[in-house]
Design a protein around this nucleic acid. Structure first.
Length: 400
DNA sequence: AAGGCGAACAACCGCGGGGCT
DNA sequence: CAGCCCCGCGGTTGTTCGCCT
């Protein structure tokens, strides 16, 4: 049994609003407000419109101080940053852009910004694929194209865009900002929590802590990330690999070389050798735990894209196995990414998207509603609490 | 000049959440 | 506590506009 319609659609006018309708609605709301009941409003003023239609017209067009078109570079940046961090939560994004509506931003994103950014990625990927060193990966991409398509478009797109942003601007933000990290799969989360609260020691690079994508192999010598250029990016969540060193790693501002840690946390980075290296990481097996040996892997566009592609495609062949206690990449035909997605209540793309989107639920609590677009105390402009400060820092990090 | 096509914008629709009874 | 109602959100569709051939 379906939901009862909100109005008698047969007698309702649809389509573009006439200037007369606009004037009628605007003058009434200006004088009386919405009355808290959009459904009843059109009847009051004699409009043959659905209440929802009136609301939409008011919110997206007739409200005072609405801006249309002409998005600035700064606004582009904010939109892109937020989309990558929280996904298509247009109302939250709109709350950070005074005068903009969620619908406006959504349309702007779908028609312009997305193409602009994905176009950049396409270009860089084309360069990458033209390289002979990428031949294998190219083949893999082609073969596994349908496989990759099973992932949530939104999540994949955001991953792609994020990777691109990371390399266009800075490789730091994502891995230094726990708010932005995706949630672990429940099993992985449990493992992580067990290690956090249990007796097992966990030693995680501050830049990789709790990230299900990248776990940096801790340096056995000093217990924290080393400043050597050689790093390991472990995709495993093997509990046996995790040790603990809270004091040294929890606080990214603990006096250590933040930049050095950050870069090392993701890939090999040597300040004296900060150059683009198109080498692709090779999978190696080390004690039953697959690792990314990134001895020569530089923090670069191509490298990051390669990693993404590896995650989405190549894992399919290298395998990812789960047992009762931990994840490890072994003999399996299911990728780690796909495994997480499929494990979410046994569903696929839609829940994958939900999973990814839900990773930033915290933003709900710090953002004002779309109706507060004219409120100067928006989350973006406020640094009143830590989360908002972090949020602001993150937002400002990218620059198109 | 006219038709095709894609981009941009406006509006609709269905669903979920929350408040109220 | 269940059911109803409304609001708000995000995805999708429809319409308009401008460019190209």
């Amino acid at each position: 049994m379906g939901r009862a319609p909100c109005c008698d659609k047969a007698n309702m006018k649809k389509g573009p609003w006439s200037p007369e309708e606009d004037a009628t609605l605007k003058s009434y709301i200006d004088q009386n407000g919405t009355g808290g009941n959009w459904i009843a409003l059109p009847q009051k003023i004699g409009l043959k419109r659905c209440g929802k239609s009136c609301r939409l017209r008011w919110l997206n067009y007739l409200r005072p101080n609405i801006k249309h078109g002409g998005f600035s570079e700064e606004e582009d940046t904010i939109i892109c940053n937020l989309y990558i961090s929280i996904g298509s939560r247009w109302s939250i994004i709109a709350a950070q852009l005074p005068g903009r509506t969620d619908n406006d931003i959504k349309n702007y994103w779908n028609t312009k910004l997305k193409k602009k950014l994905l176009g950049r990625r396409k270009d860089s990927q084309a360069r990458r694929l033209s390289s002979s060193i990428d031949k294998d990966l190219k083949d893999s991409n082609e073969e596994d194209n349908s496989y990759a398509n099973t992932l949530s478009n939104s999540a994949l797109e955001r991953l792609q865009l994020h990777m691109q942003f990371q390399n266009l601007q800075t490789p730091l933000s994502f891995y230094n900002n726990p708010v932005l990290w995706p949630k672990l799969h429940p099993l992985g989360e449990k493992i992580f929590q067990d290690h956090q609260h249990g007796s097992n020691m966990m030693n995680i690079n501050p830049t990789a802590e709790s990230s299900p994508f990248i776990q940096k192999k801790p340096n056995s010598q000093d217990g924290i990330a080393s400043h050597q250029s050689t790093t390991f990016c472990e995709l495993s969540i093997s509990s046996a690999e995790l040790e603990r060193d809270d004091s040294a790693t929890r606080n990214p501002n603990n006096g250590n070389d933040h930049l050095g840690y950050s870069l090392e946390g993701f890939s090999s980075f040597n300040g004296a050798n900060n150059v683009v290296d198109e080498n692709i990481m090779n999978w190696k097996s080390n004690g039953g735990v697959e690792q990314l040996n990134t001895d020569n892997f530089q923090s670069s566009v191509f490298g990051l894209q390669a990693e993404l592609t590896e995650l989405l495609n190549h894992n399919k062949t290298s395998g990812f196995e789960v047992n009762e206690n931990h994840h490890s990449r072994k003999n399996s035909t299911i990728s780690e990414t796909d495994y997480w997605f499929k494990e979410m209540d046994g569903n696929s793309s839609k829940d994958s998207k939900s999973w990814w989107t839900s990773t930033t639920t915290d933003f709900d609590t710090i953002s004002s509603s779309s109706n507060s677009w004219d409120n100067s105390a928006s989350a973006y402009h406020s640094t009143a609490n830590d989360e908002q400060g972090m949020f602001q820092e993150y937002v400002l990090e990218y620059d198109l």
